[in-house]
Nucleic acid binder design. Sequence first.
DNA 1: TTGAAAGCGCTAACAG
DNA 2: CTGTTAGCGCTTTCAA
Lengths: 337, 337
Amino acid sequence: MPGGRVKKAPTIVEIARDLGVSSSTVSRAFTAPRLLRPETVERIRAAAAERGYIPNVHARALSTGVPRTIGLIVPDIANPFFPPMIRAAQRAAEETGHTVLIADTDGDVEREKRIIARLAAQSESLIIASSRLPSDELVELTDRRRVLFINRDEPDTARILVSARDALSQGVNRLLELGHRRFAYVGGPAGSWSDGERHGAVLAALQGSGAHLHSFRIESGTYEDTMVAGDEILSAAPTAVIAFDDVIAHGVIDLLHHRGISVPQQISVVGCDDVLALTTQPPLASVALKAAEAARLAVRIVVEGQVSEMLSPQRIALQGELVERATVAAPPEQPRR
Amino acid sequence: MPGGRVKKAPTIVEIARDLGVSSSTVSRAFTAPRLLRPETVERIRAAAAERGYIPNVHARALSTGVPRTIGLIVPDIANPFFPPMIRAAQRAAEETGHTVLIADTDGDVEREKRIIARLAAQSESLIIASSRLPSDELVELTDRRRVLFINRDEPDTARILVSARDALSQGVNRLLELGHRRFAYVGGPAGSWSDGERHGAVLAALQGSGAHLHSFRIESGTYEDTMVAGDEILSAAPTAVIAFDDVIAHGVIDLLHHRGISVPQQISVVGCDDVLALTTQPPLASVALKAAEAARLAVRIVVEGQVSEMLSPQRIALQGELVERATVAAPPEQPRR
DNA sequence: TTGAAAGCGCTAACAG
DNA sequence: CTGTTAGCGCTTTCAA
């Protein structure tokens, strides 16, 4: 036997009736109080609060034609990179009374398309993180909807890039100063903007230094697979390893422990994302990214301006910061073989 | 200079006009196709698909009075326990065409109340995980709304508990068999249902065994604070440590390493949640919880039945499973002092 | 099997 | 400063 009946929410009309005013007046008490006498506003708000009145978002969206909703699409909610972004977006949206609808694509392009279609229909704008869509579809999309991309660097779109470039440059230079000459870059998922940028930053920083760089890739990006790929990485005999992210860096560190190679005495390790820096032994040097800031900024950008207008193309790169910790030191005197 | 104009979405009326039918007919092609001649349905659906028509959720919600939306409230999206739950809820909701609105409370009661009020107004039902609300408010809430709680064991409410009880019992018994006699439980946030249940399970399993139990608490639940609390824990000279969750267990393991105590030779460690079991050295024995299943089930329950009716009170406990790994072994012959 | 019409709760001209 | 009115896009009787 189910419980009682759900109590129906009070509407603007009931409040209006009880107070002997018109429903528009009640509406205005919330949407345009400056058009009303202050005491009227007060009276209405008090009555509304007392009854627990909350404006019906659906009615409002239908009436204004503007759903105060922002769609936020990420590849995978469970990937630790995204929750802080989601949080930040939600908080920023609250300030302007917007609701953020989250959806994840599982990294699947077809699914991403479906999700975009569904969300686009009920949101005033879309923020899409790490999109896997082919360039042409993505450009076509921005021709019809207000869309902002995060971590996808497509020309002629509005985009925010959570960049590690400057910080990685700095990290590489620091390693060079310390005397390192044999580097390894252990990359993540092929085709992701982040992997391309990070690899490129390391390459560029090493340019002309005379140092060696060997590049690897852990397609899955998991700790386990990093351990598996261990021997291949070690065969390059690096004294400094730069990892695509902290999870891979963690795998590298544990791999080295297993092989009896000490960090940082024999090999230095630098991660990226700075999500588990303190839980490795020794604490991992990493790049702290501006993911939350990117989300806040993204929301601010899509919220401002005429909702009926497209976003103007622009490219914003937020540079992360290198956080030096104990996994970085000078290379051993005698290069290992 | 902003881009062009956002293209207006096609409506049911336009399709109706183009096809020379009434808007009701188009509506029925989607909501009640069995009332229409199959060929009419086909014709309408084809035309709709071609135009990229997607029903306007706001109009539908307003018209039917039923927003096909489920509010999911969690304390903290960034806590790794919740994202898998959110994912599972989203996937389950998709099947019935529902949208899941996520909100996080920051673990703050006042904020939780505000969020509930806001979400309740635009959702047909609410799923609230790890609520911090005082009992009376929570009961009052269930008197007025369709609400289901996860990990909050309040009598006379609909609730699903992601339980570790049986698995922890089993773990403790296993440790007892191996010969352990000095146990420590390192708890998490006071007042959370999970902490109470886990502590209780360990206590109960140890009942009458003649073994000692010392209990501690890391209020913050962080890795760092666990390291800080190290000496206190060690002073109890346990040979087996059961941690509230994997993060704390990880802290304990690293703490023991620091002190030169080997795991599991000198001290065994068991975690809970099974989220980072493979990334500790050695791999952490833990309890794999049924969080995703709980979320799926929660959605199924709130979706079925008359939306206008309350959920009937019921208590469902989903037992997790002990996953034995290398952090568990027999205690040393000579008990440490 | 289909159409006409009313209405969901709210906002936004337009009057007054 | 406030009321009247129309209408957002859709569902849902009621008639035909």
